[in-house]
Amino acid sequence: MVKIKNIFKENLFALILLALFIIVPLAVGKNADIHNIIIYILIYAMVGEGWNLITGFAGQTSFGHAAYFGIGAYAVAVLGNKYDVVPWAGMLAGILIATTLAFLINFQLFRLKGHYFAIATLAVAEILRTLFSVWTYVGSGDGIKILFRPDNKVLWLAIDVRNRLPFLYITLALFVLVFILCKSLENSKMGFYWKAIRESHEVAESIGINPQHYKVYAMMLSAAIAAVGGGLYVQFFKYVDSVVFSLDVSMIFVLVTVLGGIGNVYGPIIGSIIYYTLDLSMRRLFGGTTSGINLIIFGILLVIVVVYQPRGIMGIFDDLVNRRRLAKEKALQRLDTGTPGEGSGGKA
């Protein structure tokens, strides 16, 4: 009993968010705009969570996550169209392929440090983009339009455009799984090790961590999650072409995570919510004219956040929390210096 109560308390924020995501789609009735936006938010937040593992936790910046996202999308589309494979199985295939690719190339890529690694990840995505734009098996320049028209809706994850709700809730469920996974990873041996690696390879090595191994694990997990996101994406839009591998797409994952708070498991979802609600409301309020005001305003907002608080929205709150904590600690310290024994400096 107490344990459940504790879990509830610790994750209150997450549970409130979850409740919102469940209730709001129902509350807005037939509003396709809101349904679409929520599906968007969840898919990109999901991939953001994956991206956060390698860049936020392990500290290795990846600018090419669209590579794994795109693989997930194409896997579902190609297998579904050509071999009548159920999207769930298509997503599994996407996970396998993306993870294998992550495993194979990152052993080499991780020899590069910092910025060079980031550029290399970009190159990987670009290579895939060029390849897929000429490879006839996957539709080359035309891309792939999802052609399968299933009967059993839940099994096939089909979207009935009159009612997007089933797809929305399935996406939500998958996102919750990913979120729980990332949260528990954060508190696990892997999470600790990643954070150590992020701060200092040397420290990590000195306490027995092999940075290579753990970076590759992070990359593989990250790729798997991105592939799931891609599989959902293609089913939603029913169309994918080589543009899915472009830098623009990779930067969406970066953007929503940085906006919300990189290195924080709540970052991607917060960032995604803010980004897409702002984006849509800008477009509805100012769009439709040819002035592009919405894009300008949005760009300015992004710049403000990134310049003034690089750790994103969660960073702002973390700082507030830290300031309070520091004040508390200082107060404690002042108390301690009066008494002997355990306390400041510490005695053996």
Partner: peptide, 15 residues
């Protein structure tokens, strides 16, 4: 944050 989000969603729904 939650208030902010609700505000944002309302904005969208209204517009």
């Amino acid at each position: 944050i939650i208030l902010l989000l609700i505000l944002a969603l309302l904005l969208v729904a209204c517009s």
